[in-house]
Design a protein around this nucleic acid. Structure first.
Lengths: 139, 139
DNA sequence: GCTGATTCGGTACTAAAGTATGAGGTTAAT
DNA sequence: ATTAACCTCATACTTTAGTACCGAATCAGC
């Protein structure tokens, strides 16, 4: 959150600075106009690149630094034994139906478990849950 | 390569257009100056974001190629560059919709690619495809 | 005995994923 | 110039996945 504020602050400040610089430039010489325009574009393109990268990394990396203890991770996330078991099978590429057959429970139950795991891992798809789980070393 | 040319063309054209627009604006009224400046910044920031995203996708694609012998595997399986790219994003946990946004193509196209990958990897679900792909070291 | 956590399961629904098929456009090789 | 391989996109459809909400059985610990 601090970083977000910082980024927007940088953008705002850059805007103000360039705004004023260009005004001064216009007061002195009109010949530098295009140079300013190009610099302007470059700077903001650069900011755009940084912004995009920040957003993307934030989305893909998430929390990479954590304790490498799987047990503690599971406990911290509140993921139960059964949910972990289901998650493992999800990661293997099995469908809910197949998982229900493998564990001798109904598909409804599997769905419940998967859904709970998604919430606990803050994922919206099973593929994402698998990805996050592997990052957290719990798979 | 086509995309690279296209991107730089877009940048160049945008520059020229905005350059001329601002000139006209300056000739008529000085009050709109700041509005133009802001629009200008916005547009180039947007271009920066697009550029960054493009670069990011290219970079990670190259990284995956550096592993053991994925090229031969991909060729053997008949998986194309684009399909591989989509598969990579699938493995990251993105939805078809998100992938379509990331690659600037429609969701239909993503579905087509995914479907083709499933056939080529002999998988019936995307999670299974990811699993098999990792076993084959192509992810 | 009561409580909380876990597990199991159901219904009813919405959202994604996947299939099948056709078609147009680009590019590289023949 | 024609072919072949890719990439793109669309429509229409079926199948899975996922959500929301609920009830009930089990079991450990107080």
């Amino acid at each position: 959150m601090r970083q977000t504020i910082l980024i927007f602050s940088v953008i705002a400040v850059s805007l103000l600075i360039l705004l004023n610089l260009r005004k001064l430039s216009l007061l002195s010489t009109d010949g530098d106009d295009e140079i300013w325009t190009v610099s302007f574009a470059t700077v903001f393109m650069f900011i755009g690149v940084l912004l995009s990268r920040y957003l993307f990394l934030r989305r893909t990396e998430g929390k990479s630094v954590a304790m490498p203890d799987p047990e503690a991770q599971l406990k911290r996330l509140g993921i139960t034994q059964r949910e972990h078991e289901v998650l493992r099978l999800v990661a293997e590429g099995y469908s809910n139906q197949e998982i229900s057959n493998a564990l001798f429970i109904s598909e409804s139950t599997v769905k419940t478990h998967v859904s709970n795991v998604l919430v606990k891992l803050d994922a919206r798809r099973r593929t994402q849950a698998v990805q996050k789980a592997k990052e957290l070393k719990i798979l």
